[in-house]
Design a protein around this nucleic acid. Structure first.
Lengths: 353, 353
DNA sequence: CTGTTAGCGCTTTCAA
DNA sequence: TTGAAAGCGCTAACAG
């Protein structure tokens, strides 16, 4: 039950064989303070010879800082998460911080476990990109109370001392629906309504608002929701949901001429169902997705969708976090809502009359 | 530049207000050693009251163990990585370890940075799932030499003291190609040959071996490689590569009747190119992918592909790592090669004559 | 330019 | 059942 079979080399080991004190070695290794060129070289030689590596635990304990931030991801299989993680890492790396990612995919209990393992290791701050849930949120408030810098991304959460970055899903849903309406569509279906996630819910609400704003009839038969089992499913698995929901919509006596799917995976599933039925996209049915995953531009036909500014969310979140980490004084709250952008490709067209 | 604005509560803070020593609090908090029910309750009350959290740095420093393992991921956007991370986490969680994930997507330099940040924090061991490269591999050997437990997954690497887990990509490529040959195909293309990754190269070699084993002509025009720019591109972006390569193949005077794509994303790109050309899958062209990403079963038609036992790779890797972590004695080397499995769906069919 | 001192917060070990 | 002492490996602060 040991980290390694051989005991590790410490500063004072190096100091001893170099004939100096550990303080001098520390100065050489961390490149701060004055050390004569002569001793520096001698120390460096011993460091290499003994293959010395500093112990970050001791260092962090002393410095009360680890130069490390944590990211808790709710759905690692989602391209959104990958892009988010990448963009966050770009900022943290540039600013000299390490990034440790934890997964929490199923429950508030896992959220708490991730938060705890991160705070346990004394990370300097945490970015949270999980689905909101009671247990996780409660623990978040506690952590913040304790003074841990926290930023939430793409997630419902409110605390006076935690910044948030989200995309305007409501307006995104509105834009997508309005686009279909502008093309002359009146029977517009929505696939994948869900109550479990505020962000997903808002896409649906945007759809409803657009219908209302245009005085279109709201037909509940055209709105398919998730089964409970699917409500917290990972992104890609909603593809099956899209496929099945589309099958049902196509079987309707008065089928929709356009579909707005809650995310691109769902849209891709729907596309497959439509193709299978022999109908053509976009001439027979138009379809819009949400997220603009990398694959969206490569589907056939290329998917019209709503793009979230994912990279911007990530970099902003990281900047907000580091601002908190590096500030001694209380920091003003940031609650940034970024605009979504409609990306029109080939899956939507004017309604045939 | 401080972790938090408020100084944190320590064991001895709790001890003081509870009227005991820190040792007693430690025993209560870690649930080991004997403490009377009375003191336990008193301590617990103070712990809650003061909102005490233990400091993992101090704990780890003293215990010479952090109960944490690291995972370095080469392509976080790849479903393979997500599945791998999940399965590893299942094992580590169950065995009482935390999992910290680091991303290294571009270079050996990033590999080294990830390894360093992890060892710096004294993780008990590291699972490596990046692309192999000189600089990264060199540093890996050094780490192993220093006594850090290491396991490599899906990656070329050899060291007497590091276990490896890989899928038999060579045989997988062979199976895919043989399947097409069994269906009567003779003009079989390969999309996405690459030299930069040993694992991808093996898929291609399996293809070549199957052709040879069946005395089929090896036609270089049917073998499309990566451009240099694409050679280390993330998985999903190879979709474009598949699309473009397929376009070129379809323009050939004597076009192939079957295609084996280096991965499912590439296959999906090829499928789109084929559909766009008006040809039907599988009646006009058969296509096989590799990886069995979640989307493979949802493409239209559903993709025949080679499944890697990803989950098994992850759990085995985690088990091998923890075995090393928890063993005081030298551990016997494990180099596990797992079989791939051909998953026949609807994208392949008997050659029309 | 280099060294000394002290202590970060915890747990191991031994003593009571 | 509880406590005291010591020290994990490092660096801030100060002294020389």
């Amino acid at each position: 039950m040991r980290t390694s079979l051989k005991k590790s080399i410490t500063l004072s080991d190096v100091a001893k064989t170099a004939g100096v004190t550990s303080m001098t070695v520390s100065r050489v290794v961390n490149q701060n303070g004055y050390v004569s060129e002569e001793t520096r070289e001698k120390v460096l030689r011993v460091v290499k010879e003994l293959n010395y590596r500093r112990n970050g635990l001791a260092r962090g304990l002393k410095r009360q800082r680890t130069d490390t931030v944590g990211l808790v991801l709710g759905d690692i299989a989602n391209p959104y998460s990958a892009e988010l993680a990448r963009s966050i890492r770009d900022v943290t790396t540039e600013r000299g911080y390490n990034l440790f990612i934890c997964i929490s995919e199923h429950s508030g209990k896992e959220d708490v476990a991730a938060f705890e393992s991160l705070t346990d290791h004394q990370v300097d701050g945490i970015i949270v990109a999980t689905r909101s849930n009671r247990m996780g949120d409660e623990y978040l408030h506690e952590m913040i109370e304790r003074g841990v810098p926290v930023v939430c991304v793409g997630r419902d959460f409110h605390d006076e001392n935690a910044d948030t970055v989200t995309a305007d899903a409501l307006n995104g849903g509105f834009q997508a629906t309005q686009h279909l309406i502008d093309l002359g569509h009146k029977k517009i279906a929505f696939i994948g309504a869900t109550l479990s996630s505020g962000q997903n819910l808002k896409r649906f609400q945007g759809y409803l608002q657009a219908l209302k704003a245009n005085n279109l009839k709201i037909d509940e038969r055209l709105m398919t929701g998730n089964t409970e089992a699917n409500d917290d499913a990972p992104g890609y698995s909603t593809e099956k949901l899209g496929y099945e929901a589309m099958k049902r919509l196509l079987a309707l006596p008065n089928r929709p001429t356009a579909v707005f799917a809650r995310n691109d995976f769902t849209a891709i599933g729907a596309i497959n169902a439509i193709k299978e039925s022999g109908l053509k996209i976009p001439s027979d049915i138009s379809i819009v997705g949400f997220d603009d995953i990398p694959m969206a531009m490569h589907t056939y036909p290329a998917l019209t969708t709503v793009r979230q500014p994912t990279r911007r969310q990530g970099t902003l979140a990281a900047e907000f976090l580091l601002r908190r980490v590096e500030s001694k004084a209380p920091v003003e709250l940031e609650e940034k809502v970024l605009e979504c952008e409609l990306i029109v490709r080939d899956s939507t067209a004017q309604l045939k009359r």
